[in-house]
Amino acid sequence: MPEPVIVAQNLVKRYQDFVAVDGISFEVAPGESFGLLGPNGAGKSTTMRMIGAVSTRTSGKLSVLGLDPNGYGPEIRSQLGVVPQENNLDMELRVRENLMVYGRYFGLPHARVARRADELLEFAQLEDKATAKVDDLSGGMKRRLTIARALINDLRMLLLDEPTTGLDPQARHILWDRLFRLKEQGTTLLVTTHYMDEAEQLCDRLVVVDKGRIMAEGSPADLIRRYSSREVLEVRFGSTQNAEVAGRIQGFGERVDVLPDRILVYSDSGENELERMTAAGLRPITSLVRRSSLEDVFLRLTGRNLIE
């Protein structure tokens, strides 16, 4: 079995007044696409920074690419690509120049960086923006440029912190497509996200993180199977009626969750549950049958929604 690229054991990061990461443990194998899923403030980015060798852990063990970040920061970082949550492209430089200066930071010769920059502009579909000002790029383009920049060195692992937050659906799909290509080429991906669909699209395996702790671990399908049902029926009776109706549908499906605005019925067949409801004389204002998602897993595990 190949040696894992990340081994975290009981990893803790404590700031003066709070614990951001509270003893998490996981391993990532080479070539794997691994996700940290959780709401804002769960400790995902902090974990990512510790793995990226820019944040010193408070306690626990951590090995990245076989090295301890405490003693080998530059050595680890030389083999990583990092896409931070906040774009930090240099606004005072042009698009291609951003790739050039970044490549030099890895000690690569000018000619090699120049060649690689042109390849990456093509990969990021930014060839005709090479001399544009960064400020003039759209949000999606800036993100693609940041990803291109992260790929300039000979990396063994790509860290992506909330790669598509704030992008419109079309831009997200273009980005996912690019990331999927990297995954196919065997690049190890480590992704944090609070988007279910993103985790389902990109991750082979993930951990659900909340308040600095790991709540569950597995593949997306695996987690859904374990913590949810095949389908979910969402019904709305109007906010004043939900509580009253809730009493009458206990025992429906495998489980019922009453939220302030709607009721969720977990079942292998949402349609069947809807028929039962109609037969019982209940008339929801709206109803929707959908496949179960990681959102449901998160709700089940924490009793809260991911995006609040």
């Binding site: 690419l65 076989g66 090295l67 080998y72 530059p74 050595e75 680890i76 970082r77 030389s78 083999q79 240099d90 200066v101 030099r104 930071y105 890895f106 000690g107 000979d154």
Partner: peptide
């Protein structure tokens, strides 16, 4: 070998990193 490769990959930057920043 892994460690030696890592050390080699970062060696230039350990030595010339300040100049790369100046270049930027």
């Amino acid at each position: 070998e892994t460690l030696a490769a890592a050390v080699a990959a970062a060696a230039r930057t350990r030595r010339y990193g300040s100049w790369y920043v100046a270049e930027h």
